[in-house]
Computed example of a mutant assay.
Amino acid sequence: MRDSHLHTGRKAPRPATEARPLPGPAFFSAAPQIAEEAALWLQALSGERRASRHTIDAYARDVGVFLRFLTEHLGAKPDAAALSAMQPADLRAFLARRRNDGLESRSLLRALAAVRNFLRFLEKKGLARTDVFGAVRAPKRPHSLPKALTVGDARDLVDPEQRAGEAREPWVLARDAAVMALLYGVGLRISEALSIQRADAPIGRTDRVTITGKGGKTRTLPVIEPVRRAIEAYLAICPYDLAGGPLFVGARGGPLSPRIVQLAIQRLRGALGLPDSATPHALRHSFATHLLGRGGDLRTIQELLGHASLSTTQIYTAVDKQRLLDAYRSAHPRAD
């Protein structure tokens, strides 16, 4: 199956389900002026900001709950004067109520963002103030460890032989294999791999590649021979003239969409029986975790990954410790 129809360069039309009307003023428990402004805010999110329907629905619910809370908390429907006089203690009370309602940190953070966005919209019209947010400590983000693949699973995922039976053009299979090889063999983000130009391809005796990562920072990375061979295999059968353009292209010769690579890995993990956590970014996690497990220096791994702070890289020490603990529990005769 060709993948060109998945990436045309145009913004996809919104699904028909997003055509349902936005909540109107009656949805919000507030003084008439604030309720009307809330409806206008949602329209602005939908129109100018082009927020997704999911985001708009979530923000509408969060602000609706906030305004109902204020109505109960203040003893009257909030108006511009009440919102302008709001204190940090009022926001803390709202967060405490939502926490008691069972919301976890991720949902609390979204609710706080929604309320801040709404009040910022009102502030531009002189109807509220947002400086109170500076005195309120946001809930801590939930800390989840990256899910690295086992060495065997990572090798299977990047092995082109694992996709030999797919009904896809050989050059497409070779292209996807080369991208995956860069993710696992060099530790690139998918956007970084797809940003490489044909003129900069690490092939032959060129065993380095220079990447511009987050924040516009560049780093030069070593490229091991298996990765170079994967890129060479792709170039040998690619039907397009890549001179002057990107190294990786889609079925019609345009820039390759990250979504195409994500779908390729999705198909492959289904065939290999891998978990849903086996994603393009999991290959980057696996690169770091496996290097650390083989004695790699944390500072070096930081430089390879392009992390601005060592604390970001240190998460992989916890990943590796968890891997060792899991191995101990599964293998030690007294682990039970």
Score class of each variant (00 low, 15 high):
R110Y: 06
G75E: 09
R175H: 03
I56E: 08
V179M: 00
G295N: 08
D320H: 11
M1P: 10
R129L: 05
E166M: 13
A154E: 06
L221E: 04
A113I: 02
E36K: 12
P170C: 06
L108F: 03
V209M: 08
R49C: 03
Q266G: 11
D131Q: 09
L103N: 07
P21S: 11
V227H: 06
E166Y: 12
R284T: 01
A38H: 03
V151A: 15
A80W: 04
F94G: 00
L70N: 01
S286M: 05
A327D: 12
A19T: 13
G216S: 14
T71L: 03
G187T: 02
P13L: 14
L45Y: 02
L91T: 01
L292N: 04
L304H: 07
Q266V: 02
F28K: 05
A93L: 06
Q302H: 09
A278R: 01
Q197A: 15
T17M: 15
P258E: 03
D159F: 06
T313F: 07
T212W: 07
P239N: 08
S105A: 15
L122G: 03
S52Q: 09
L40D: 14
A233I: 05
A138P: 04
R252K: 14
A236E: 13
A26K: 14
T218H: 11
E192D: 05
H290L: 06
Q87M: 14
D336A: 15
T312N: 07
E18S: 15
Q314V: 08
P202C: 09
G253M: 02
A243P: 03
V136W: 07
K147T: 11
D90I: 04
P13C: 10
E232Q: 14
S257K: 05
A167M: 11
Q162D: 05
V172F: 09
H5Y: 13
L45H: 02
A76M: 09
T17L: 15
M180R: 03
A93G: 08
H7W: 11
H281Q: 07
A282G: 05
P23S: 07
R99L: 13
R205F: 13
L182G: 02
A233C: 07
A93D: 10
K147I: 10
V63P: 03
L103P: 03
Q302V: 06
V179C: 00
A193E: 01
A193H: 00
T17I: 14
